[in-house]
């Protein structure tokens, strides 16, 4: 409960160049496992790096790798400001 003071938002609301910290995932099953395998576990810093020509997907820096996520998938990652 130590994060209550920081407001939760969703990863897809991040602007390019902004960083945030992962607080949790709302996805289930295989999808959740895939996110965890990307390194999206609690306290991981993520930076939005690139927007594709049509605006979606967006590529994020996650643990040194550049990973593209669609907006609705990024919306399943809860984050808070650094």
């Amino acid at each position: 409960m130590m994060y209550l003071d920081k407001e939760l938002s969703l990863l897809n609301s991040l602007n390019i160049g902004e960083k945030c910290v992962v607080r949790g995932l709302t996805s289930e099953g295989k999808e959740r496992r895939r996110m965890l395998d990307l390194g999206l576990i609690r306290n991981t810093t993520v930076e939005a790096a690139l927007r594709s020509p049509s605006g979606d997907p967006v590529a994020y820096y996650i643990r040194g790798a550049l990973i593209a996520l669609r907006s609705e998938d990024a919306a399943k990652v809860q984050v808070s400001a650094l």
Partner: peptide, 10 residues
Amino acid sequence: RSSFTLELPP
């Protein structure tokens, strides 16, 4: 719809 993850390698 399945989730989409795509790595953009260096």
